[in-house]
C-alpha cells in the first residue's frame, strides 16, 4: 500500500477532475436527451442514499448511537436546518447517547 498510495491519489484526482471539467468545457448549449438528463438528475440522490444506508450504522462505536445520530440528522435536515448544523447536532447526538454505559456494538 505504501508504494502505490500516490498512484491511487493521482488516479482518483484525475477521474474526479475530468468528471467536473468535461461537461462545462464541452457543453455550450442545452442538454436535450430526456433520459440522460433524468439519469443525471437522480444520480446524486441515489449515490448518497446508498452510501448512507447501511454504512452509517457501523460509523460509530454503537449501532444505537448511529441510529440516533441518523434520526437527528433526518429530522434537522427535514426542518431545513443548515448543513453544518445538521452534521454538528448529529455528532452531538452520538456523543450524548454513547455516555450511556454498555451499549451494544
Amino acid at each position: 500500500m505504501r508504494t502505490s498510495i500516490w498512484i491511487y491519489i493521482a488516479v482518483m484526482a484525475a477521474v474526479t477532475y475530468l468528471i467536473r471539467m468535461i461537461p462545462i468545457t464541452l457543453i455550450r448549449g442545452k442538454i436535450r436527451n430526456r433520459t440522460l438528463r433524468s439519469f443525471l438528475y437522480y444520480v446524486p440522490y441515489v449515490t448518497l442514499g446508498a452510501m448512507t444506508v447501511p454504512a452509517v450504522f457501523h460509523a460509530t462505536n454503537s449501532v444505537i448511537s448511529a441510529a440516533v445520530g441518523l434520526a437527528a440528522a433526518l429530522v434537522l435536515a427535514y426542518k431545513k436546518v443548515s448543513m453544518i448544523l445538521v452534521a454538528a447536532f448529529a455528532c452531538a447526538a452520538v456523543f450524548l447517547v454513547e455516555l450511556i454505559p454498555n451499549l451494544p456494538v
Partner: peptide, 29 residues
C-alpha cells in the same frame, strides 16, 4: 466515534431537499 457521523449528516442535508419535494426522489433513495 461521534465525528464518524459528520459525513452522513452532510449527505442527509444534501439529499433532503429533493426527498422533501419529489416523490420519485423519495422512492429512488
Amino acid at each position: 466515534s461521534a465525528l464518524g457521523l459528520a459525513i452522513y449528516g452532510m449527505f442527509i442535508a444534501i439529499i433532503m431537499p429533493g426527498i422533501r419535494e419529489k416523490r420519485s426522489v423519495r422512492f429512488a433513495v
